[in-house]
């Protein structure tokens, strides 16, 4: 199966290990992974801030970059969902709208792809730790991927999963919200970190670069002893830590 990786800008620049793990994981299950080099950013920060016109160029670039792909897989739920927004963005442009629909239909978030397309729940992974999982808002509510990460994590040998209290609450990232409304964002991320601490987990797992950057940033600032990891890193692990 041929898969094009949509790494996302945060994944390209900050979370390189999560990207590597994603590639290795997909290859382990027989996928042939390519990386279209012309990809940039999905345009989410501008789009969600109301700059729709300024987002169209990014959208067109992404649509073109992945035009050849059979499947597009991304290690980030909100960025995968952003490809779904392109359809309405081009409501007055039927040519690009049609292309946008094609892109949307072949795009998957990583855990969604593993469970829905590859039909895998047990990745044969092994990782020894006590961990909790942060459900990202756009991935669960908008993309509708709710159970996949939990199913996959439940099969990881050695991993003890603890429920995160109030797990459906937003972590306060919200893209530009985090810098436009910093005082409110701070309260939200503090509440999230409090709940993470209540679980006494050593590791916080997530599937969205933005949320992880926010939560990890706050954890580090306050010197909390919790490590933040992307779900691909856990699933790609074979107990060699």
């Amino acid at each position: 199966m041929k898969v094009s990786l949509f790494i996302t800008c945060l994944g390209d620049v900050f979370y390189v290990n999560a990207g590597k793990a994603t590639v290795e994981l997909l290859e382990r299950f027989g996928c042939e992974v390519d990386f279209p080099e012309t990809q940039t950013c999905c345009g989410q920060p501008a789009y969600n801030s109301g700059y729709r016109e300024n987002t169209k160029a990014a959208a067109k670039n992404m649509i073109t970059s992945f035009a050849h792909s059979e499947y597009v897989v991304s290690p980030s739920g909100s960025c995968a969902y952003m490809f779904h927004e392109y359809e309405s963005m081009f409501e007055d442009d039927p040519v690009w709208q049609e292309k946008a629909i094609k892109l949307k239909e072949k795009t998957y978030e990583l855990t969604q792809f593993l469970t829905e397309v590859l039909k895998i729940e047990d990745t044969g992974s092994e990782f020894h730790a006590k961990a909790t999982y942060h459900t990202s808002c756009h991935m669960t509510r908008l993309l509708g991927v709710k159970e996949a990460p939990f199913k996959l994590l439940s099969h990881v040998k050695g991993l003890e999963m603890v429920d995160l209290p109030n797990r459906h609450d937003c972590c306060g990232f919200g893209g530009t919200f985090s810098i436009k409304m910093p005082a409110i964002s701070e309260q939200m991320v503090d509440e999230k970190v409090e709940h993470i601490e209540e679980t006494e987990a050593e590791i916080l797992i997530g599937a969205d670069g933005g949320c992880l950057m926010n939560i990890e940033g706050r954890i580090k600032r306050n010197n909390k002893p919790v490590k933040v990891m992307h779900i691909a890193e856990i699933l790609n692990s074979r107990g060699e830590v």
Binding site: G11, F14, K220
Partner: peptide, 15 residues
């Protein structure tokens, strides 16, 4: 409010 990670010299695309 938060730390920001450092952009990696070897980006994913380089790797």
């Amino acid at each position: 409010i938060r730390d920001l990670p450092v952009p990696q010299k070897e980006r994913f695309r380089d790797w």
